[in-house]
Amino acid sequence: MANHNIEEQVGIPWGIAFTVSWSGLKRRFMRSLITMAGVILAIAFLAYMLISDKIIVALVAAKDDELNDLLQKSNVDIFASSATDSMMLLLIGLSLLTCLVGIINSMLMAVTERVKEIGTLKCLGALDSFIVKTYFIESSLQGVIGTIIGIILGLSVAVGIALVNYGAYTFSYLPLNGIVISMLAALVIGSGISVFAAIGPAYFAARKQPVEAMRVEE
């Protein structure tokens, strides 16, 4: 009816939201690092388990007598098809669950810390969708970066331990394909968990009202 010169606010595209989130993430680097630490450790553990399993399977398959002695010395069952048993799978599962809960928890805290900031942005004309986008991107980015760092860490530890135990044999029989597949698997799992964990806190952030900007902290 009469509202001819009051328009509807237009949403902000993902690209601009990404720029805003990315520069915020860089400036809050230390805070982000704490959030990332959980992801880094969980994914490092996962990547380590997957990669060292591949390495040992390759070494066993070499059927080298001297190498078999070394393998048995480090308690590897050379007749088993895989070094990963169900106990290890449970541990991996638990660490990934901790990772999921950790991301959700630290993002919810970040939202609570920045309630006033969200209120202010809404006073400036931000729509809920902008808040959802920026928090979703921020959380996902932290998760994906943490996952990549975790994979590199896990790979280094797995190769490092193999080098200590089996010396030069590690490189003679290094299962490159298997390692790349393990790293990709860890990347998919880690990123998947991070992006999934980002959804809830992003909507929680968007529910904050513009009036929060007026709150005066004592």
Binding site: N3, E7, E8, Q9, T120, L124
Partner: peptide, 17 residues
């Protein structure tokens, strides 16, 4: 969406903090 538009185009907020 209209309220957000009003806050964006019609009002400038200044806060104590």
């Amino acid at each position: 969406r209209q309220l957000a538009w009003v806050r964006c185009h019609k009002i400038g907020f200044i806060f104590q903090g």
